[in-house]
């Protein structure tokens, strides 16, 4: 068991710019569940021009933004944060990147006009603007979730970019309902070391407590070498999880 009061450092990257679809819900969920597991979480916000050694964080979160904001961030990555963030990822820090943040992990985003906006290139993936916006409820299955709970992940996607993974990279999960990375290959998101990229909003973590605990476990293993979490009362979360599955299955968008 993890000792009571052990600290867990959460970094919220660009909370002022990348916060398009309730993304702060993921940080709220990480912090709350860490508390309920008896840890002592702290959240540090890091934004433009803020140079940080990201290896000191246990969990780093980046959400989605509008095109304009994402361009500002691209520049910031190139000039300020890119190498430090790459070092943290290679050091097995946990990174959760959603939607626009997910796309930025890759090597580039190709716009409708064919212009290639460079990403950080931490993960071998790339995104191409599609003609159709992929919107709707999503159900994904992943084998990353431990324990007796369901292996499903539920959320809402809303993206026009279609993302493709390089050879040898694993998607975060397999699409059951919805579009996923590109609406073609059945994959959703990416997992690379302890980095998870995904298109799922919802917010993602609150009604997927299995995913939150997966991230917390990976973070604790890295820092403390042990990662046993006691089970929590997840009745409310699982009811929302099941309701989202019903909603995704009954409604075609």
């Amino acid at each position: 068991m993890i000792g009571i009061g052990q600290e867990l450092k959460i970094c919220h990257l660009y909370p002022d710019l990348m916060n398009l679809y309730g993304d702060r819900g993921n940080v709220i969920a990480l912090r709350r569940r860490a508390e309920w597991h008896g840890l002592r979480p702290s959240v540090e916000e890091v934004s433009l021009e803020d140079k940080s050694d990201f290896r000191r964080f246990d969990v780093i979160f980046i959400g989605g933004g509008q095109d304009r904001e994402q361009k500002l961030i691209c520049l910031d990555f190139q000039k300020v944060k890119g190498s430090a963030l790459t070092e943290a990822v290679e050091d097995d820090a946990v990174l959760l990147a959603i939607c626009g943040g997910y796309q930025l992990l890759g090597s580039y985003y190709q716009t409708g006009e064919g212009e290639r906006v460079p990403g950080i290139g931490i993960v071998d993936l790339w995104t191409v603007a599609g003609k159709k916006r992929l919107i709707g409820n999503v159900i994904v299955e992943t084998d990353l979730i431990e324990g007796p709970g369901p292996k499903t992940v539920v959320g809402f996607e809303n993206h026009s970019g279609q993302t493709y993974l390089g050879a040898g990279l694993r998607p975060f999960g397999k699409v059951v309902t919805g579009y996923g990375n590109n609406g073609e290959d059945g994959g959703e998101g990416v997992i690379y070391r302890n980095t998870v990229g995904t298109y799922l909003h919802g917010s993602l973590l609150p009604k997927n407590p299995g995913v939150t605990d997966f991230l917390l476990r990976r973070a604790l293993l890295r820092r403390y070498g042990v990662a046993e979490l006691k089970p929590l009362d997840d009745m409310a979360e699982m009811r929302a999880h099941e309701a989202a599955i019903r909603r995704a299955k009954t409604k075609a968008y």
Binding site: I28, G202, P206, K207, A236, R239, A244, R247
Partner: peptide, 17 residues
Amino acid sequence: LRAEDMAVRLKYAGVET
């Protein structure tokens, strides 16, 4: 239709369940 999501939001906001 999303009563359950709302309940989770309140729980995580710190409203006693």
